[in-house]
Amino acid sequence: MTPVVLGLRRGWTEIKHTFTNPADLWAYLFPAALLLGTVFFMRNATVPGTSFSLGARTLPSIFGMGLVLGGLMTTAQQLIMDREDGTLLRAKAVPHGMTSYLSGKVALVGGMTLVGFLLQLIPGLFLVDGLSVDADGWLTLLWLIPVGFVATLPLGAAIGSLFDDPRNMALVVMPIFGLIAISGIFYPITAMPGWLQGLAQAFPLYWLGLGMRSVFLPDSLAAVELAHSWRHLETFGVLAVWAVIGLVLAPVLLRRMAGRESGSAVAARRERAMTRVGR
């Protein structure tokens, strides 16, 4: 367990460093401000067929979206950047270094996602009315957040292992943004065509948004969801399937990636990066 403990300590240190880095602070504050601004301007609109604020309905969906963005995009981005600057090669060179490295990344991504969640939750409670969490909601959070992370973090690591150039992040970002558009995050999915509804339900984003809505919204709002239910069993099942897929793929792809890391590969990536800067 020593490499894991060391990795968790490293992750905690990196989280603290994010509060002193202007770029990291911007990465915390700008998305939160943008999303909260969106919710604020939606506060007077209503969910179709109800008198409930569309902004209040959207905010919990954004919480679920934040888990996906943290687990997939942040994890993939961290791996790609660490490959380029040689951090991953140094981790590979020491005994149990990859175990320590990966546990540290889990702690870092989890901590950053939690900070982003709090930055959205606390101001959001003052922007919209109608959100509340009862005892069942707290119990749902206890399993939804861990299962959500397990369903997305390994996938993010697997995706990050496929790329060695930060510019390729667009290949990750664009499909995720497409899923956001069809997954009922900013507007009920029932307004989408049937085939888009089926496509959205194949991925974790829709289910994490639905799960978060079930935590913070009154039960009467389940009537505007598909099947007129919060569908906790289906949420757990789909997330569990993606967790298994990620946990199977990630170790294989990470081992292959680590096996290909070498000093010459890192030097070549640095040369490409310096060429881009020179231009």
Score class of each variant (00 low, 15 high):
residue 149 F to C: 02
residue 229 S to K: 05
residue 156 G to M: 03
residue 35 L to Q: 06
residue 266 V to K: 14
residue 38 T to Q: 04
residue 194 G to D: 08
residue 119 L to Q: 01
residue 154 P to A: 08
residue 95 P to R: 02
residue 235 T to I: 07
residue 268 A to F: 15
residue 30 F to D: 00
residue 47 V to R: 15
residue 24 D to M: 08
residue 51 S to D: 15
residue 82 D to F: 13
residue 118 L to T: 04
residue 82 D to C: 09
residue 247 L to T: 06
residue 153 L to W: 14
residue 243 A to L: 09
residue 152 T to Q: 08
residue 53 S to D: 08
residue 195 W to D: 00
residue 240 A to K: 10
residue 50 T to V: 03
residue 153 L to Y: 12
residue 13 T to Q: 15
residue 63 F to D: 02
residue 2 T to H: 09
residue 212 M to Q: 08
residue 273 A to W: 09
residue 121 L to D: 05
residue 6 L to N: 14
residue 173 V to S: 07
residue 209 G to V: 04
residue 165 D to V: 09
residue 151 A to R: 09
residue 164 D to E: 15
residue 231 R to E: 02
residue 258 A to E: 11
residue 112 M to N: 09
residue 26 W to Q: 02
residue 140 T to K: 04
residue 106 V to P: 00
residue 47 V to K: 13
residue 117 F to V: 01
residue 46 T to R: 13
residue 22 P to Y: 03
residue 231 R to Q: 09
residue 236 F to W: 10
residue 252 V to C: 07
residue 167 R to G: 11
residue 105 K to E: 06
residue 89 L to K: 10
residue 203 F to H: 10
residue 143 W to V: 00
residue 207 W to G: 00
residue 6 L to S: 04
residue 15 I to H: 03
residue 98 M to H: 12
residue 111 G to K: 06
residue 25 L to T: 01
residue 271 E to R: 15
residue 195 W to R: 04
residue 51 S to E: 11
residue 273 A to K: 09
residue 67 L to F: 08
residue 47 V to I: 11
residue 21 N to S: 13
residue 263 G to I: 09
residue 178 G to E: 01
residue 67 L to D: 03
residue 195 W to H: 04
residue 251 P to D: 08
residue 191 A to G: 00
residue 173 V to C: 01
residue 5 V to I: 15
residue 186 F to A: 06
residue 168 N to E: 13
residue 79 L to Y: 12
residue 136 D to Q: 14
residue 55 G to N: 00
residue 45 A to E: 08
residue 56 A to N: 04
residue 133 V to D: 02
residue 169 M to A: 02
residue 244 V to Y: 10
residue 117 F to C: 02
residue 27 A to C: 05
residue 180 I to T: 03
residue 228 H to S: 13
residue 205 L to H: 08
residue 85 D to Q: 14
residue 58 T to Q: 07
residue 277 V to H: 15
residue 93 A to G: 05
residue 234 E to S: 15
residue 125 L to C: 03
residue 256 R to P: 03
residue 169 M to S: 05
residue 143 W to F: 06
residue 245 I to C: 11
residue 235 T to E: 04
residue 224 V to I: 13
residue 180 I to M: 12
residue 243 A to C: 07
residue 78 Q to D: 10
residue 114 L to R: 02
residue 244 V to F: 15
residue 232 H to R: 06
residue 65 M to N: 04
residue 263 G to A: 14
residue 209 G to W: 14
residue 250 A to P: 01
residue 140 T to D: 01
residue 94 V to D: 01
residue 150 V to Q: 09
residue 149 F to M: 10
residue 97 G to F: 15
residue 274 M to N: 12
residue 18 T to D: 08
residue 205 L to M: 06
residue 219 D to A: 13
residue 41 F to T: 05
residue 225 E to Y: 11
residue 242 W to C: 04
residue 279 R to E: 10
residue 72 L to S: 00
residue 63 F to H: 12
